[in-house]
């Protein structure tokens, strides 16, 4: 088992390298660079100064080949934690994105937990009482939840809340806390604002988790060991929770890995619609204005968080499932 975990962690390193390369390549793709944007701006304002542009070009190494630029970026990141410079905000990227990424991770993690708390009992109940009215309702809601894009759900809920409460429920903080330093009151304010992004982000994930859990438990309920557990005189709830549910949890745990990328994806669009101070709106803006180090850092770090999430879920799975645990050793 330890061997497997060590190998899994070692594998993480080349993966990180590959991801950084992909992120850097993506932001290098657009024709031109930030300085072309700047040049046209300067041109429009009539104070075009080729000398300034040339100096900037040299400073950021835009005239060098791709691999050299990538190497510089990676080296600065590894050596000094320097993610580059945001042209648009005129500050180092690392001083800019910390809070946005932290909020993204917090909201995503909270969604993951909420999804589980909702999806597990519903999935189990649906499996134990298949084809009941409850099961049908859960199935239908699940399908619709899966088919509705995050941003659309966000729009509809935002409109509904506005219609019902007459208030704009977007954002993660009340205006008085938005730029305030962190305090308990601000945390409480955050929690009070979190319900909408939680519902929006959680719905599609919960929908597929319910379906998966239902199918898994339904499968397990047919297995002879369930009958054997009944024959031991265990009460029905214990028979179900202790055996089939426990077994069904394993494939279910492995789905965390695949749901994390989806959650981060969803978090980006949802944050844009709901105007949340998370990675999404900043990334979009950086992409549009070709603020390449900022955009690249967002893409890279979002991917890294996803990979870490997947890594944790893989390790959890090995710890929980004796079959994997022993096969690998």
């Amino acid at each position: 088992m330890t061997g497997y975990i060590v190998r899994r962690i070692l594998w993480f390193i080349p993966t990180l390298l590959a991801v950084s390369l992909v992120s850097f390549a993506i932001i290098q793709l657009p024709p031109g660079d930030y300085l072309t944007v700047l040049e046209s701006q300067m041109g429009a304002e009539g104070d075009y100064n080729p000398e300034v542009v040339a100096r900037l070009r040299e400073r950021f190494g835009f005239d060098q080949p791709f691999m050299v630029q990538y190497g510089k970026w990676m080296w600065a990141m590894l050596a000094h934690g320097d993610l580059g410079y945001s042209f648009e905000w005129r500050v180092p990227v690392s001083s800019l994105i910390g809070e946005y990424l932290a909020l993204t991770v917090i909201v995503t993690a909270a969604t993951l937990i909420a999804t589980w708390l909702i999806a597990l009992p519903i999935g189990i109940y649906s499996a134990v009482r298949p084809y009941s009215i409850f099961d049908y309702i859960a199935t239908i809601l699940g399908f619709i939840g899966k088919a509705t894009p995050n941003f659309l759900l966000a729009l509809v809920l935002m409109w509904w809340a506005f219609d019902t409460f007459g208030a704009d429920v977007s954002g993660l903080f009340s205006p008085e806390y938005a730029n305030a330093p962190w305090s308990w009151a601000k945390v409480r304010d955050l929690i009070a604002h979190m319900w909408l992004p939680l519902i929006v982000l959680g719905t599609s994930g919960a929908a597929s988790l319910i379906r998966q859990m239902r199918a898994n438990v339904l499968d397990e309920l047919q297995k002879p060991y369930v009958e054997a557990a009944r024959a031991q005189g265990l009460p029905e709830w214990k028979v179900i929770l202790r055996y089939p549910v426990r077994v069904a949890l394993n494939p279910f745990l492995s789905t965390i890995g695949s749901s994390i990328p989806e959650l981060f994806s969803g978090a980006v669009t949802t944050a844009i619609v709901l105007n949340l101070p998370m990675a999404g709106p900043m990334l979009l803006r950086a992409l549009v204005s070709q603020d390449m180090y900022l955009a690249g850092s967002f893409i890279f770090l979002l991917s890294v968080f996803t990979l870490i999430g997947t890594l944790i879920s893989d390790i959890l799975l090995t710890l929980v499932d004796p079959r994997i645990r022993f096969e690998e050793s």
Partner: peptide, 16 residues
């Protein structure tokens, strides 16, 4: 590719 969040990647590519 499957362990990466697709929307940010798509956004990056589409911005190009």
């Amino acid at each position: 590719l499957q362990s990466l969040p697709t929307i940010p990647l798509w956004m990056g590519l589409a911005a190009a």
